[in-house]
Design a protein around this nucleic acid. Sequence first.
DNA 1: AATCTAAATGAGACTTATTTGCACTTGTGT
DNA 2: ACACAAGTGCAAATAAGTCTCATTTAGATT
Lengths: 146, 146
Amino acid sequence: MSAAENQALKKVLREHELKATNQRVALLKLLDATNEHFDADEIYLALRQKQKNVSRATVYRSLEALVEQHLVSRVDFGDGRMRFERCQDEDEHHDHLICEKCGQVIEFFNLEMEAQQLSVCEEHDFTPSTHTMHIFGTCAECRKKN
Amino acid sequence: MSAAENQALKKVLREHELKATNQRVALLKLLDATNEHFDADEIYLALRQKQKNVSRATVYRSLEALVEQHLVSRVDFGDGRMRFERCQDEDEHHDHLICEKCGQVIEFFNLEMEAQQLSVCEEHDFTPSTHTMHIFGTCAECRKKN
DNA sequence: AATCTAAATGAGACTTATTTGCACTTGTGT
DNA sequence: ACACAAGTGCAAATAAGTCTCATTTAGATT
């Protein structure tokens, strides 16, 4: 049943000039299947649990390749480890609100903001490829708790 | 001649309920004097070079305290190490364009974008304390080189 | 000015995240 | 099926940041 999905992922990898290895397919599939922001080690452990043959080094190397091809993006919530999420289309790009109290991450999308970014890039004659925008603060629940 | 500056920095530290130690004053002064984005180790080495008595542990601990007090902010350019810059007033907050080819960092300020951020926070009933916005891509010079 | 005490510091061992070298394996073009 | 470059696994190496604990210091108190 996931054979079709596997084929689709392999196609995606090849279109990005990456060899479609089992490890990479499994990694992409894992990220596709979740909304969470895994770090490298969580990805490694999750794949091992799925009986996938993969090493930590490969997880790091694959993530690097996938990020370079914009199939995956890095997100840094400032807690010292890099996290990853599957990329959507660029016009579906979302950003993050991060609660400093409980660690909750709220994703948001704001068309105006995306437009402003393009305008800033134009002003500076800069060709954007990707961006990250994190707003740190306190979420509604945590504020009420005080 | 920098005695006055030192006194001013000590005052700032005390206003934020931080003991005004020589190490912290020297660190703030260093960041005030540059536009670059130093990482912890660069700060450590720069202070040593200025004959300041300071340890790596203190650099990390001081930075942590200063970031918490919003006197300094962390910037992550995605290269695996945390960098730091002196904070301006919140209404003077700037963001970054980062060239993936040459590593150049261009700072920008966009009022519209700041306004959009506040509106996103309101929508999600989120109280912001700080934010980071990085746009990665190719700068004008690097684009022309191709 | 001398004294006191909680907070801050220094040294270096330690932890955790990530990278690298190298021998072995595998995807893919022919 | 074959050849070979690309990818992988393992274990050792590096790098970034944290922690412990003995010592020092800022700044409040007298």
